[in-house]
Design a binder for these strands. Structure first.
Lengths: 125, 125
DNA sequence: TTGGATATACGAAACTCTTCGTATATTTAC
DNA sequence: GTAAATATACGAAGAGTTTCGTATATCCAA
């Protein structure tokens, strides 16, 4: 099972596909252009490259192709988090968690959610 | 305050400097070469580029320059984690934590450490 | 039916990253 | 003192990323 390694632009496009579901190039471009000033053919090119890389699949049965992410968001997040932990934290998920929680203030309800997960993890063991 | 954006190779060199302290190019290359087959001048070039980017500082008073990381490990980790959370998790540190803990098994003592941090965070608020 | 809007494909320029070779200076060792 | 070892600097090739322009096909509307 190969792990994905999207560029920053590719990740942005994947996020749009994950959030909105299947999209045409035009739809992705509209979303993209609400943030950044980037041409239509630039997005088209990105998505063509992503297609050759296997990051997206597309339905070509109509003139206007419809794209979808070829990886689920959950799997992609797993792979990217794993790599991030390996690269920066020598494989220690705990160090990442400490750093993340130390720098961002989480609401009490979020903290409760994490505490719940901690409990589940301990019980499962 | 500008945020750093090291490439993968640059990050590996920073990690060596953080772990071993100040180093010559030769020392970094030795460490690097224990993993990967890469030439001396390649590492030299990386470190020269990192110097122009401000990622490292160097003492040039001797012929053999001595390099040090220009940014502390803690600050670098903060910045990189923040960017990672922004790029992949829409700014939610909690989502990152859930994903990280869900995929990696942490020991009980590690879970206890995280629980302690959670308590501190709640009390501090 | 013809012209404008909309699609894809392709090519290429500008940048960055990775990788080394080579030129040159300095130190060391015989 | 000269040759080998060790440094830095520089240039450049090759790959990948970002960005569009242009060519070409297709659909729709007057």
């Amino acid at each position: 099972m190969k792990t994905i390694k999207p560029t920053e632009s590719e990740l942005e496009i994947l996020k749009i596909l994950w959030e909105r579901g299947d999209c045409t190039v035009r739809q992705v471009h509209e979303q993209f252009a609400s943030d950044k000033d980037v041409g239509y053919t630039t997005i088209l090119k990105f998505m063509q490259i992503m297609h050759t890389k296997g990051l997206v699949a597309r339905d070509e049965s109509n003139k206007t192709h419809v794209y979808r992410a070829a990886v689920s968001r959950d799997v992609a997040e797993q792979q990217l988090v794993n790599k991030f932990i390996k690269d920066l934290f020598d494989g220690s998920a705990t160090r990442l968690v400490m750093q993340a929680l130390g720098n961002h203030r989480a609401s009490n309800s979020e903290l409760a959610k994490i505490r719940q997960l901690l409990n589940d993890l301990e019980n499962k063991k």
